[in-house]
Amino acid sequence: MLKQTFNWFLYIGGILTLIMFMSGCSLLKGPLYPDVIYNNRQPLISVTYEYGEIEIKLPLNYIGVVPEIISFEVYAHGDTANPIISILQEAPRVFFVYLPQGVLDIHNKSNIIKIIPQDTNFRPVNVRFKGIRFGRIVLPPKSIQMGQLIVNGKVFLNKDETPLGGVDVSIQNFDNVIKETTTNDSGFYQLSVPGEYKYAQHLRLVAGNNMIFKPFKQKLDFSKTLKMRYNIGMGPNKAMEDPIYLTNRESVHFREQPDIGSETLFLLGAGEAISVTRVTPGEYYGSIEIEVGSKKMVQLDGWVNRTDVFLLDLNNVFKKESGNVSEL
């Protein structure tokens, strides 16, 4: 009896289990709505950008003098009116600048770094370069130097102010020729030397080494300017009357009296002019011009040996190839 009852319960339970399995438990859970119901809520999304940096490295070489302060201005896309950044700093050996990503032209060399030394003796330098989106740019070294020191002018004959072409003109430091040139047909010359000579103490302009006259020499002082003009008159002045003789060697005695043993007033260098007024068999008497300061010239009379001078011919004022005045 008990076994029959147990079998009956087992039978009923089996049928119920089968019904539940077949209906997907929906009898207990209820039916499932066929669609997912969204409320169209904005999803939570985080977007983070990482922007790179542009590091520019520009080594600088200073030739001669180093400026104290330099202004660096960085421009992009060829716009030279509005700098991306301006930096004023002591003259660095390497200039570093950091820029945000995307500010430079990455297709063309239209980005510019203007290097502006805060010293009027230096000229601004521009560095053009092609940009990158981000990362490091190492630019080739750039040289910074003082502006060129320039001296120019005309060379002419003192006697009649005729322009002299073909005259050697040079700038010397002590006795070393730094730069030399020759005047053109109009007598014009121009010489330039690097700015590092700006404060040189023994810089001088020398003209007429290839002429029969005493060379012109003038100390140059560029400490207050970068450009100077010197018009150079060669040979005897207008005030000296013909006939004019020139000394043909160094250390020619210009004496007070014609006799031997007379006092020597001056030792004349080669090419100095003497305006002769009297002649003796062995001597000439005449006057020389002497600068007494402030470019004021005075004439002084005296005697020279005839063998120490030669007659000036203004049609032939250049030395011959050998450079010996006496060969004229």
Binding site: P43, L44, S46, E50
Partner: peptide, 12 residues
């Protein structure tokens, strides 16, 4: 245009 972009999505 940037170096990197990081996206975080929190699904509902």
């Amino acid at each position: 245009p940037s170096q990197a972009v990081h996206l975080d999505f929190f699904m509902n």
